[in-house]
Nucleic acid binder design. Sequence first.
RNA 1: CGGGGAGUGGCGCAGUCCGGUAGCGCACGCGGUUUGGGACCGCGGGGUCGCAGGUUCAAAUCCUGUCUCCCCGACCA
Length: 417
Amino acid sequence: MRLSQLFTKTSKNAPADETALNAQLLIKAGYIHKEMAGAYGYLPLGLKVLENIKQIVREEMNALGGQELIMTSLQRQELWEITDRWDDEKVDVWFKSHLQNGTPVGFGWSHEEPISDMMKNFISSYRDLPISVYQFQTKLRNELRAKSGIMRGREFVMKDLYSYARSDEEHQRIYDQLTAAYLRIFERVGLGDKTFLTFASGGAFTQFSHEFQTLTEAGEDIIYVDRAKKLAVNKEVYTDEVLAQLGLDKSQLEEVKAAEVGNIFSFGSKKSEQLELYFTAEDGTRQPVILGSYGIGVTRLMGVIAEVFADDKGLVWPEAVAPAQVYLARLGDNDAVVKQADALYEKLTDQGATVLYDDRDARPGQKFADADLLGIPYRVVVSDKTLAAGALELKKRQDDQAEQIIPGELLKKFGRL
RNA sequence: CGGGGAGUGGCGCAGUCCGGUAGCGCACGCGGUUUGGGACCGCGGGGUCGCAGGUUCAAAUCCUGUCUCCCCGACCA
C-alpha cells in the first residue's frame, strides 16, 4: 500500500472524548473510527490487524476440526424463552426490535441458543458427534456503560465456538484441546508471557469456567496469579476453599489487574435438555448432547494488544498482527531515490512481504513520526544518504538505532520462504 | 442506574464568571523558500457555538428543558 493512496491520515491530536490509550492511539493513527459510545468502525489498517488476528484464531480452530459458519444477528424470541433468557430482567443487555407485523426480534448478544437449536437439524446419531462449529460474529450488547475504547463496546466481534460431544469424557478432551489452542493463540499474537489461564465462576453449569486473562492496568478484572505455575484465580471465586481445591498457595499469589481476552465453559447437558438437543447412542438410547462454549473477544484482543505494547511514540504491533511488516520511508524526491524506492517496494511486494510505502511528499520527521505512531515492526529508509552508502537503513520499531543492510539482504529477510 | 466532568470549523482548544454578533494551533487550498525526527513565510476557504424553548434592543455567554460524550461506582455465562 502506498501511503499517498491511503485515505486515512494520522493526527497529532488525540480525541478529547477518549481517555483509553487503545482508542486514543488507534484513532490518532487512523485505524478505527468512533461512531458512538461503544461502537467503532475499522478502517483499512485497523481492519488488516483485525483480519490478521482472526486468521490466527481461524487456523487454530481449524486445526482442531472446527468448522466455520456464520449465524444471523436477528434472533427469535421463542427460542430464548425456552432457556428463560429473553426477559430483560434476566438478560439486561438485549437490543430488541420488532418486525413490521409486530413480531419481536432480538439482536444477538450471544449465539448459544440459536446455534445449538440449528444443530438439532444435523445431530441425531452418535455418528454425527463430536463436532465443533465456530464463527466470527458481531455481537450487540446494550451495556449500561461502554468504556475502555474497543475493549468494551456495545458492538464487537467475537469468535465463538461450540462443541458438541457424546459424553463428559469426550467433552473434557475437547475442552482440554481448546484450552491448549487458546494458549497458542495468545502466544502467537504476542501476549503469551502476559496471559494466564484463570479459574472463574462456572455460573449455573459447573463450578469453574476458565478465562484467559492478560495482565494490563487497562483491564477490568482483578485476578490472583501464580507466575511459576502460570495459573490465576479470578477475584470472583477467590476463597481459601477454592485455593485449597486448586492446590494454590496464597503466599505465591500476586493481585493484579487483567483484561479477559477469552472465556471457555462447559454446559454439561443442561442446555441441551432445555433445547431438546439429543442424539441416539450406539445402544439405541436417547442421550443429551454435552455442550461447551468457547469465546475470544477478537476486537477486545486487538485493543489489549494495542494497549500492552504501546510506548510514548505510539503503537507497537507484534509482527504476527501488524497491518504491514515494513514501513518503507522514501526521503526526498530526486529521481534516483524515487527509482530505488519504487523498485524496492515492487520487489518486496512481489515476494509477498506486506509494505506500507511512504511515498508522500513529506519531510523526514513526519515520516518517522508516522512510522512510529502506526507501529509497523520494521522501518526501511531510502534516501540520498543510503544511496551514497550503497546500503539501506533498517530499524526495528522498538529500537533506537538503525542498522545498515544491502538491498539483497533486505529482500532475503522479508521474502516469503 | 447513582456521583462527577464536558459539548465552540475535520481534530485539539480559548472565549462563558462580567451579554455587544467568534478566535488560536493542527489539518486543508494557492504561491514561495525548504528537506534525516512532526519546516518556515505570505495569502485564502471553512463554524447559525449539541438541540429546543425562554429572558433581552442584543445570547457562545443568562434561565429552563433535552440529547450526546468521558470518568468513578454499580452491572458483566
